[in-house]
Write a protein that binds this DNA or RNA. Structure first.
Length: 442
RNA sequence: GCGGGGAUAGCCUAGCGGUAUGGCGACGGCCUGCUAAGCCGUUAUCCGAAAGGAUGCGAGGGUUCGAAUCCCUCUCCCCGCGCCA
């Protein structure tokens, strides 16, 4: 949620941000109008209440002096009627103002490139040596801006979907039978690979000073609303029927809500949490995309970084959580690019977002595996999380980034570490996996 | 699920129909050669340029001229009992 004072004092900043996001800037004027009506009526209401309080004092005094109070009582009753009427107006305008305010997306950071959609996202970094099938070379060179190392391979690796089915490492058909499409049973070595990835990511983050937490997998509406936005509610979040509970789409939600309604001690900042949880996503509106395999699914496991910090430090921590995620992919030796998400493609909650996209040689594309957002004070405001400052309380900034989303990283490993007779296990995972190879067995 | 006890400002605590008590902490000031102690003030949210005012006792209703206080519904926590991987 935005600060109402920002809209009152600098409406142009908000209008400009709306325009860059391809959204209607006139909502700002609607908010301003309702805000003014609310304030005017609130003044009237408070004057009435003040009058009432004075009358009640008079009653108290008169009772002590044993005087008759029936006349003043009648007056108060009359005032109460007026109060009731104006209270309704005040409440209605405030609710209308706030529901508009609640749905205005975050103000874009100055560093966000202007753009219409995902095609305008700006690549800012390339790392590693990509294996590129010769037919994909043109596409690769374009998307890597000619600034990434590569080797040409003359055989396209087998898709992860085919590998999983052929060697019985996952079963999406039976998952479809019992739960529907975009579900999976992981099997055999793939289960161990997933656990290895989780352990590896957790230990990496613990070394970086993160407190690891397994979070609730469901949140109340209040908590979920604070952590996300209306759009997510419609497109991604599952509701539990008959309960005030929603399945988290990432542990970010649970970690953001962790300090809901609290006032944090400034000396405790930054708070760095590493969340582990399953993620549940409806994937509404992605019909036809990645329909096979485990790349885009309704449920997957993820290790997430989450930081609460002072406003002046969020830029620094945004780079830091990106760096932590990059280190993970560097250590796994998966070639990637970092993109700065453009204004038209940025979600409502983020002020600025980087994605890490790993080169997937079987798909011949860069695919998203990490998303690192600076949310500024948007979530903190919605969740009423404040910091006790020296002079006054303020809202902390929150940031979040994937460390490892297991299914997508496993896809990346299957595509990048594929040999004719199996899949090599990336070095950092060997000690958890207990072996350095998954041999294909029919 | 049943019975009992709770929820008051950052934390603790009093009040149990008539202006929200006191302490701790934090911040500012006074006093100090310095530190400590001591003393004074501030301490939540909102409206207002300010003076000032309104709100705030877990949440929401109700009774009353007036509710932290009485009544109803709900949430969460603690103690027992029951059920349970």
């Amino acid at each position: 949620m935005l600060d109402i004072n920002l809209i009152r004092n600098s409406p142009d900043i908000v209008r400009e941000s709306q325009r860059k996001r391809n959204l209607d800037p006139s909502v700002v004027d609607k908010v301003l109008e309702l805000d003014m009506i609310w304030r005017e009526n609130l003044q009237v209401l408070e004057k009435l209440r003040n009058l009432k309080n004075k009358k009640i004092d008079e009653i108290s005094k008169s009772i002590r002096e044993k005087k008759d109070v029936s006349e003043i009582k009648a007056e108060v009753s009359k005032i109460n009627e007026d109060i009731e009427k104006i209270e309704k107006i005040v409440e209605d305008t405030k609710n209308k103002r706030d529901s508009l305010l609640w749905n205005i997306p975050n103000i874009l950071d100055d560093d966000v490139p202007y753009g219409k959609d995902e095609n305008d996202n700006l690549p800012v970094k390339f790392w590693g040596k990509a294996k590129v099938f010769k037919n994909d070379l043109e596409e690769f060179l374009k998307n890597s801006r000619n600034s990434m190392e590569y080797e040409i391979i003359d055989k396209r690796p087998v898709s992860h979907t085919d590998i999983l089915v052929k060697y019985d490492l996952a079963d999406t058909d039976r998952a479809g039978k019992v739960a529907g499409s975009r579900f999976y049973y992981l099997k055999k070595e793939l289960v161990k690979l997933e656990l290895s990835l989780e352990m590896y990511a957790i230990e990496h983050l613990i070394k970086k000073g993160f407190t690891v937490m397994e979070t609730p997998f469901m949140l109340s509406k209040r908590a979920m609303e604070g952590a996300t936005d209306l759009e997510s509610f419609q497109d991604t979040i599952y509701k539990i029927d008959g309960e005030d509970l929603y399945l988290i789409a990432t542990s970010e939600h649970a970690l953001a809500a962790y300090h809901m309604d609290e006032i944090l001690d400034e000396n405790d900042l930054p708070l760095k949490y590493a969340g582990i949880s399953p993620c549940f996503r409806k994937e509404a509106g992605s019909h036809g995309k990645d329909t096979k395999g485990i790349f885009r699914v309704h449920q997957f496991n993820k290790i997430e970084q989450f930081v609460y910090c002072k406003p002046e430090d969020s830029k620094f921590f945004h780079e830091e959580i990106l760096k932590n995620a990059e280190e993970i992919y560097q250590n796994l030796n998966l070639p990637y690019r970092v993109i700065n998400i453009c204004s038209g493609d940025l979600g409502n909650v983020a002020s600025k977002k980087y994605d890490i996209e790993v080169w997937m040689p079987a798909q011949g594309k860069f695919r998203e595996v990490v998303s690192a957002s600076n949310v500024k004070d948007y979530q903190a405001r919605r969740l009423n999380i404040r910091v006790r400052g020296k002079e006054k309380n303020y809202f902390p900034h929150t940031l979040n980034s994937t460390a490892i989303a297991t299914t997508r990283t496993m896809v990346a490993i299957i595509e990048n570490y594929q040999k004719d007779d199996g899949i090599k296990i990336p070095d950092p995972l060997v000690k958890y996996f207990g072996d350095d190879f998954i041999k294909f067995v029919k």
